[in-house]
Amino acid sequence: DETGKELVLVLYDYQEKSPREVTIKKGDILTLLNSTNKDWWKIEVNDRQGFVPAAYLKKLD
């Protein structure tokens, strides 16, 4: 059920640097789980959840 889920576009590649982070690729469109922290957003990638720098993402309307 995708209702109410926010999507984000990945602006730059990011390689995870800790187990709490996930790797993302430029151009991916992913589900945003939590954006309350202005610097690190929690997203879902391939059934994995983790954090990436918010500056690497853009919210889609």
Rank of each mutant, 00 (worst) to 15 (best):
8 V>Q: 01
32 L>K: 01
47 D>G: 15
34 N>K: 07
59 K>L: 11
29 I>Y: 05
43 I>S: 00
31 T>R: 15
42 K>E: 15
42 K>F: 15
22 V>F: 07
57 L>R: 00
60 L>Y: 08
1 D>W: 12
47 D>Q: 12
56 Y>F: 11
7 L>M: 11
24 I>L: 05
13 D>M: 03
50 G>Q: 03
57 L>H: 00
41 W>T: 01
15 Q>C: 10
33 L>G: 01
15 Q>W: 14
18 S>G: 11
46 N>G: 15
5 K>C: 11
55 A>M: 12
26 K>V: 06
20 R>H: 13
38 K>T: 10
59 K>S: 05
13 D>T: 06
29 I>E: 03
12 Y>F: 13
17 K>H: 08
48 R>F: 06
56 Y>I: 09
58 K>M: 14
6 E>Q: 15
26 K>P: 03
49 Q>K: 10
28 D>S: 13
35 S>N: 07
30 L>P: 03
41 W>L: 02
55 A>C: 14
20 R>M: 12
16 E>S: 15
46 N>M: 14
5 K>F: 12
45 V>Q: 08
52 V>K: 00
19 P>G: 08
51 F>M: 07
36 T>S: 14
35 S>A: 12
44 E>P: 01
15 Q>L: 12
21 E>P: 05
6 E>I: 15
52 V>C: 05
2 E>N: 15
39 D>K: 15
27 G>K: 02
18 S>D: 11
3 T>C: 14
14 Y>R: 06
23 T>Q: 03
42 K>N: 05
48 R>Y: 05
19 P>Y: 08
29 I>Q: 04
22 V>A: 08
43 I>W: 00
25 K>G: 05
10 V>C: 10
2 E>V: 13
60 L>W: 08
35 S>F: 07
28 D>A: 13
11 L>T: 04
23 T>D: 03
8 V>N: 00
47 D>H: 11
55 A>K: 14
55 A>V: 12
41 W>N: 01
16 E>M: 12
4 G>S: 13
20 R>P: 06
48 R>E: 05
28 D>R: 06
48 R>L: 06
15 Q>R: 10
47 D>N: 13
39 D>I: 15
37 N>S: 10
23 T>N: 05
16 E>C: 11
29 I>K: 05
3 T>P: 12
33 L>H: 05
8 V>I: 05
18 S>W: 07
3 T>D: 11
37 N>A: 09
59 K>H: 07
48 R>S: 06
43 I>M: 01
57 L>F: 03
10 V>P: 00
23 T>A: 04
40 W>H: 03
9 L>K: 06
42 K>H: 08
35 S>K: 07
14 Y>S: 01
24 I>H: 01
54 A>N: 03
20 R>G: 15
40 W>Y: 07
41 W>Y: 04
29 I>S: 02
39 D>G: 09
27 G>S: 04
27 G>V: 01
14 Y>K: 01
53 P>Y: 03
55 A>Y: 10
54 A>S: 13
45 V>S: 09
39 D>R: 15
1 D>C: 14
59 K>D: 02
3 T>K: 13
50 G>N: 02
7 L>T: 08
31 T>W: 15
27 G>Q: 02
25 K>Y: 14
11 L>D: 01
30 L>S: 03
8 V>K: 01
8 V>Y: 07
51 F>G: 01
10 V>H: 00
34 N>G: 06
2 E>K: 12
5 K>R: 14
59 K>P: 07
27 G>Y: 05
24 I>F: 02
33 L>I: 14
42 K>C: 11
27 G>N: 06
53 P>F: 03
61 D>K: 14
61 D>Y: 11
38 K>S: 12
2 E>Y: 12
41 W>E: 00
22 V>P: 02
48 R>H: 06
